[in-house]
Structures are given as C-alpha cells and as structure tokens.
Design a protein around this nucleic acid. Structure first.
Length: 267
DNA sequence: GGCCAGGACTCAA
DNA sequence: TTGAGTCATGGC
C-alpha cells in the first residue's frame, strides 16, 4: 500500500512475516513494525536495500551536472532506485511486464499475488507477500492463462519456479559471483533476455552500472532529449552512457522519471 | 479500429 | 547473426 507519505508492505524474512510501515521523518525514515515478527536488524537491512539508502548520489549528480541533463539534479533530486530484493519476484515481474503496457502488467501481477501469496489483514486492508516458488508447485498453465498470462509467460513463470525449487538458481550463491557470471546465469533461464537480466542486476543486486538495453521507455526518453534519433543505434546509446560510468542504472531511472510526471512508471 | 506496450523465442536464410 | 513472425490483450 502506497500513500503520499507512507508505504506499507508485507515482507517475508525466512519463515517469519512482517508488515512494515515506512514514513518520511524529519531527516530520515521512520520504520514501524505494524504486525508480524522481525528483528530490528533484519528490518533495517531490508529497508536499506529496498530504497538503496547506502548509496551516495553526489558522484552521479556531478556527472549529470556535466551533461545536457543537469536539470535532473534539481527536478528529481533525491530520487532513489526502489529495488526488488527478492530474486524470484524480480524475474517474475520482468516476465509479466514484457511487451505489455504497465497498467495491464500491474493488473496481472495483482491477480497473481492475491491468488498465491500469503495474506495478512490489517486495519481492514489485505496485504500479500509475493508468492514463493514452492507456492506455485501445484499451479497449472490454465490457472495462469485464466489470469490473462499468455501461454509463453505462463510457461516461463512455471518453469522458473521449478528451476528455483530444484536449486537450479539461487540468490545467495549468485550474490557471491561476479557481475558477468551473474548475468550469464540469468540469461540461461527461459524467458530471460538481455533486458530482463540487466533489469534484475540493477533492481535485485544493486548493480547500478547495468542498463536495460532495448527498453522502450529508455528509447523514448533518449529521443525526447534528442540524444538518439535511431533506436537501433546502440553504439550511440552506449557512447552516451559511457559518460556516466557506474551509474547507467540511475541514469535509466532518471530518464524513465522524465517520461511522465503523472505516473509511477519510474518505480 | 489500428497501433503500440518497460521482450523473448523460434525459425528461416 | 539478422530479420520476420508470434505471443495476447489493454489503452489510447
């Protein structure tokens, strides 16, 4: 649940679940455990990763100020990458969002989460965790198709869940690998192409040098800023990103943000 | 009503 | 390795 100055979310910590509230404080965030169970340290770590709080954005702003996008340091000041700490969730979300408009993607995701996630009701509102791979073990193609997944996407998701259950991919072991190894492991998964792999590196593993090439929104923003004229001109895009070494992910985030002041697609 | 969405896969040449 | 076809449906 997101309201103007508070975010509530049901989060899973191994076997425990916790409904947490994050509010804007004076100069910091106020975290509250509304229901469930969690250690303070777990909460702190989770929130830090979720909102990418440990990152010093000043080097990025220096680079922006040296570019044609310097207005962003003012207009979007303080905007941080909202991560997806759970790997399975991140990949599923990418698959759902592939090639369909975001509103529709949100709808499908909601149906999926409400059907298979764990529920906790608080103050009359139902909160859900994102389903774990094990919670999908009995789910069929038809179940997902009824939620308006395409056949391909239903297949990707169910295959992905199986791969997780069988240990074919593991977030902890991936964390200790190099970026290149991580990406090649991700690309082995059915339904994961370059766009998804880079998106996951950025959102889950905090690799801010990773850029979701091929992203429609990114193309649009680059065109709007007269940085490219041809979407197939990958060289030109790479050249532009080269002036932001290590910050390609944030640059993408800020470019997404520039697309729409009225929606939340940047998140 | 047509075209495009935060892509990825298959198959042909 | 490049390009066209396919998936599926909502939103404008």
């Amino acid at each position: 649940m997101v309201s103007p100055n508070e975010v509530r979310r049901l989060v899973r910590f191994s076997e425990k679940k916790a409904l947490i509230s994050v509010k804007e404080g004076n100069k910091n965030l106020r975290i509250e455990l509304l229901a469930g169970d969690a250690f303070e340290k777990e909460l702190r770590n989770y929130i830090t990763k979720w909102f990418d709080l440990n990152r010093d954005l000043n080097p990025f702003y220096d680079q922006l100020n040296n570019s044609s996008l310097s207005y962003m340091t003012k207009d979007f000041y303080g905007l941080r990458m909202v991560g997806i700490p759970d790997l399975f969730e991140a990949i599923c979300w990418c698959i759902i969002g592939q090639q369909i408009n975001l509103n529709f993607a949100y709808k499908i995701k909601r149906r999926f989460v409400e059907a298979y996630g764990d529920k906790l009701s608080y103050e009359g509102v139902d909160f859900y965790t994102f389903p774990q791979p094990e919670q999908l073990s009995m789910v069929t193609m038809n179940d997902l198709k009824e939620m308006q997944f395409s056949r391909q996407k239903a297949d990707y998701i169910l295959t992905l869940a199986k791969t997780f259950i069988q240990g074919g991919i593991d977030q902890d072991s991936l964390s200790s690998r190099t970026s290149v190894e991580r990406k090649s492991e991700l690309l082995k998964l059915k339904g994961v192409g370059e766009w998804t792999a880079n998106y996951v590196l950025m959102k889950t593993f905090g690799e801010m040098g990773s850029i979701p090439f091929g992203d429609i929104g990114l193309f649009k923003a680059l065109e709007n800023h007269q940085i490219i004229t041809d979407r197939k001109d990958r060289k030109k895009i790479e050249q532009f990103f080269e002036s932001f070494p290590g910050w390609g992910g944030y640059l993408t985030l800020y470019l997404w943000r520039s697309l729409a002041n009225s929606d939340s697609s940047a998140l």
